[in-house]
Amino acid sequence: MARVPELVVIAEQLLAPVPGGTGRYTAELLRALAVTAPPGWTVASAVARRADVEPARIPGVRGPRMLPLPPRALVAAWQAGLPLWPGGDAVHAPTPLAPPRPARARWGGQWGRQWGRQWGRHSLAVTVHDTVPWTHPETLTRRGAAWHRAMVTRATRRAGAVVVPTRAVADDLARHAPGPVPVHVIGHGVADLPAPEPPPEPLPDRYVLFVGTLEPRKGVDVLVDAVSRLDGVALVLAGQPGWGGLDPVALAAEHGLADLRVLGGVPDAVLAHVLRGASVLAVPSLAEGFGLPLLEAMACGVPVVHSDAPALVEVAGGAGVVVPRRDPAALAGALRAVLGSPELAGRLVTAGRARAAEFSWRGAAERIWALHQFAGSRPS
């Protein structure tokens, strides 16, 4: 019986304490890769060894198969260049956590010849979501910024292909981590959210919504300041706390914001309800690689106000209101304009729906399959 070729996706981000946007990307891409698999191919996932891997299970995807090392050891091993292969004929790393691909000059001796032959038969593509470790390192831990710089640089020099979500990231990557590996711009998609379910506590009638991890680069401090300048409008934050010790409640007290709702991480059904009830979505980030909440809000018919971070401007495509970063007065003015003008809000909703329709996870998956099939059809 002929052996069935397999694409293995590193799904470790699905098991992270705060999966964030890259966790959502991993899950949606896995689902789409399984649906769009070329004839004869299967899709599997791989994760580090741990007691519970249920959150990484995706319908239609084999696994997750557990690698022999626990999470921290796996991160350290791959960073050090240890050739722990996750299996399969092709590997896609949806974050920079990827198995090493050694340079040909290092393929010496029996081990080198064996490892070199293995890589000659397999393809590796790595998704790089942003260049924040170079452009805004202060919004990450020092260790996290250094690790990402090292792993991304290795990908641009040794992977078979690098995938980025926007041209803005591709351009930044060429400046900060240039390499011979081809870089492909493949945007995210828009998922079909499930039937809405309300959160345990009722939401206010009018609210500005923020969706994302609560961490410094997301501009939540600027948003709290901006909404405190508006009358009769609440601020709803949907997302898990991240690094940086951001305290929205303390920020609200400091700026005199009377109505703040912090929902934490919410399941997709609750997110659907929260999105559909929002008066406007605010995306005040200092830096982004894509900005998936922006696109999901547009798909749900919610007007969007976003910062002038290049990737957000690119993804919005003119369908949102753009404001300068770190400018609470400008953000407040834009939010006030949208909230006070049904005509402006209506135009943004129409433009946003059209813009969101241009993106799909199926299309993203098909383009990633093409990368692996092309790479696997020729010597590495």
Rank of each mutant, 00 (worst) to 15 (best):
A32D: 11
A238W: 06
G352Q: 12
G112H: 05
L251H: 03
A44G: 13
G160V: 13
L371R: 06
H372K: 08
W243Y: 14
V181K: 05
W111V: 13
S307P: 01
V169R: 07
A332C: 07
E358C: 11
V163P: 00
G187P: 00
L263A: 02
R367K: 15
H188D: 09
R367Y: 05
Q373Y: 00
V47G: 05
H273F: 10
V208R: 08
G277S: 08
A345H: 01
P379Q: 12
L29F: 07
E201L: 14
A311K: 11
L294D: 00
P102N: 08
R31E: 15
W85S: 10
E28W: 02
A375Q: 14
E197V: 15
D89T: 08
R347I: 06
V132E: 03
H306L: 15
V220D: 01
R206Y: 03
G21N: 02
L237I: 15
P68T: 12
A161F: 02
P99T: 04
P182L: 11
H129P: 01
A282R: 00
R167I: 09
R101Y: 12
A174I: 01
T141D: 13
L271Q: 07
G256Y: 15
V185P: 05
G116N: 04
W115L: 15
R31I: 09
A37M: 02
P39Q: 10
R65A: 12
G256N: 14
V274P: 11
W361F: 13
G189W: 04
C300H: 10
P267C: 09
L281F: 05
K218G: 04
P39G: 08
P17H: 06
P248E: 12
R206K: 06
A272K: 03
R49N: 06
C300Y: 00
A299N: 01
T166I: 09
A174S: 14
V75S: 02
P133L: 03
V4K: 08
A278W: 00
P64A: 07
P96I: 11
A177Q: 09
A73M: 12
T26E: 04
V233W: 05
A311R: 10
A159G: 15
T350Y: 02
V126Q: 04
P86E: 04
E288Q: 03
L230Q: 09
E54T: 15
E54I: 03
V211E: 12
E12A: 10
G318C: 08
P178D: 13
S377D: 12
E288A: 07
V280F: 00
Q118P: 00
K218V: 10
T213E: 10
R121M: 12
E197F: 00
V305H: 01
R355W: 08
V349C: 05
E314F: 02
L294F: 03
G244K: 01
T350R: 13
R158V: 11
L203P: 10
V236R: 06
V185I: 14
E314P: 10
L257N: 13
G264V: 10
G88M: 05
A174E: 14
R24T: 15
A195R: 12
G301R: 04
H273W: 14
P102S: 09
R355F: 08
R336Q: 14
V313Y: 05
P216Y: 00
